[in-house]
Design a protein around this nucleic acid. Structure first.
Lengths: 138, 138
DNA sequence: CAAATGATGTAACGATATAACATTGGAGTC
DNA sequence: GACTCCAATGTTATATCGTTACATCATTTG
């Protein structure tokens, strides 16, 4: 699609904050972390987030009301058809996609005569590391 | 599971409001509609919503920040493994589940050694009626 | 340079959700 | 019936998430 779209300073700072973080961050946490860079108001963060979302460089996790850097900067040609798994304990996020799942959704949509525009697919649970860590403390 | 849990007055009012509505309602809209019944504060709504969610009688749609009555009052033995399709235009909601989709998630989880607790699956798009209605106005 | 466009800064506000605490209202017991 | 316990309720205040409105600045492009 369009050229990789050069990022502005604010956008680059927000993206770097998300990329550096181990977990999804809320807009206000991002704001807080960028106070030293001159960020003062939520809008500075939200505007950058909007552009980064458009560019497919980050995702918003509805179930957490938080944002995460995209692990595989795919061009979002069609809609967002990516699934996320989120560890309830460490908050780390796994991003994956599965043509078979898309196929099932498409089949349901065809049956129901529904036109899919986008999808929110977020699984919550425990990752291997956290399950292992918790075994003794049961 | 446990007995159908008799609803309190507040819970019944909130559930009826959702059941009567054609679309998902935000907590504050529910509050507004129940002003005449004596509702004054958000917490009265949120507490009822919490119980109704526990009982599996309603769902929260993360992508809309809104609540909808469950169309098929299934006992939520395991976690929520239901998918929703939401029309962007009329806001009506279709609720469905697909063992094949669950199977694919389970397969991914097994591969990744992730233990699934719950899932948020929400598709956004246009329903048949709204697509038909919009055809002329293109 | 001037006009057009897009990014920025700032303040105020709207929408969503929860904390804290006092009170009330049964259900079960004595 | 009086007592106790616990869940539900009412109320106020506050936390969290996101947007509107408007003035300013920078960049490009004719």
């Amino acid at each position: 699609m369009s050229a990789p779209h050069r990022l502005t300073r604010n956008q680059a700072l927000v993206l770097e904050t998300l990329t550096t973080a181990e977990e999804p961050l809320s807009a206000y946490v991002i704001l807080d972390r960028l106070k030293d860079e001159g960020f003062r108001a939520p809008l500075q963060v939200y505007r950058a987030l909007d552009k980064l979302l458009e560019a497919g460089l980050i995702h918003r996790l509805d179930s957490l009301k938080a944002f995460v850097a995209c692990s595989t900067p795919h061009e979002h040609d069609a809609a967002d058809r990516v699934a996320f798994a989120i560890c309830q304990k460490c908050a780390r996020v796994w991003e994956f996609s599965d043509p078979a799942i898309e196929g099932r959704f498409a089949a349901w949509a065809a049956d129901t005569d529904f036109e899919i525009a986008s999808a929110t697919i977020e699984i919550s649970g425990l990752c291997a590391a956290c399950r292992k860590a918790g075994e003794g403390a049961a």
